[in-house]
Design a protein around this nucleic acid. Structure first.
Lengths: 181, 181
DNA sequence: ATCAAATTTCAGAAAATACTGAAATTTCGG
DNA sequence: CCGAAATTTCAGTATTTTCTGAAATTTGAT
């Protein structure tokens, strides 16, 4: 590993826990991400000094996040991995997986909590707050879904507009009020 | 704790680790969030059966995330806590803290990695990939910043538009091409 | 300033998580 | 199918994180 790659890999190892993955998984991903060619488990284990089995589990985890893709090299029985290098694709994948793992379970818990009949004033207040949380999470979740469908270019344009979208929205409001609906 | 509140609290405890906080912290937050009145550390420790010191550390953590606010009750020396109940405010706070904790350190690592002179072809490829990642994170980071400044109403409107924003953008493109710039 | 109530700190125990190596299983070329 | 190469599983160990209780510190009413 060159010093440049080493520092990148080390950083991903350190940040791993904040991102909800562990050190090994973070480092494996970083290594695959910057590698010019697909890597096999042995190379990864060797480079990072982790056991072959640990790397195997890490790769499974990364596949479950859809952050690495399995490749086959002609005339080689081993499995090779590379990572999508398009940042937008990665962002989409992460957003989708996080929604699935971090938002959906809560949404479904909130949905059933909101169906309960409150048994006291305390429950009434609790349900009101849960309702607020539920509605926001649902809104965000649907928004993610919509945004997934935009192409990278449009998405980038939107982001670059940033707060100026507000102006656009005001403008449309005016247009609309003078037309249908 | 009523069964309704209990299930909400338990869920936050379980999800905690996916969200980058621990079980105690998740449960303390959930309890404060749905409580009709501010709670003090003793009440929380009692309700959740955690030690007073654990609750103290959990509250510190929640304060560092700006998810709970310190209150004082007249004629009582103890510290009471409540949580902002406006979902948008919570979202803003979370987005801002996550950016600070999860994106900024990586952005600064990437910035310095990109200043290095690549020592070989491998480094050249690595830097290209890092550049892609850097640019996206920076774009998102700035976008968050912009979005922070929008009021809840505008933000909600934007989200509800979802993918239809694309139409709006196309429209503006047409308008623009017929005007300045 | 005093002192009791409240909070925080921190060392060590408990629990959870990550990691390894050996064994089991799968895979695929012949 | 056979068997070597590759991958996965899993029980046990190591490490990290969380949690507690006792001691130290801070706070604020008197």
């Amino acid at each position: 590993m060159t010093p440049l790659v080493h520092s990148f890999v080390a950083h991903f190892g350190e940040m791993g826990s904040r991102w909800g993955i562990n050190r090994t998984v973070g480092q494996i991903y970083a290594l695959i991400f910057v590698s010019p060619k697909p890597l096999c488990a042995d190379e990864i284990a060797e480079t990072l000094s982790y056991s072959r089995s640990n790397v195997s589990m890490g790769l499974k985890e990364l596949q479950s996040w859809r952050l690495v893709k399995l490749r086959h090299v002609a005339g080689d029985r081993r499995e090779y991995f590379d990572a999508p290098s398009d940042a937008w694709e990665i962002f989409r994948t992460l957003a989708e997986e996080r929604r699935r793992r971090e938002m959906e379970p809560t949404l479904s818990m909130l949905r059933s909590a909101l169906l309960e009949t409150p048994s006291c004033d305390e429950d009434k207040v609790a349900q009101e707050r849960m309702k607020g949380m539920h509605d926001l999470i649902e809104l965000m979740s649907n928004w993610f879904d919509d945004v997934q469908r935009l192409d990278a270019q449009t998405l980038a344009k939107l982001m670059r507009m940033g707060a100026r979208v507000q102006k656009l929205l005001e403008l449309t409001g005016q247009l609309k009020s003078g037309s249908k609906e």
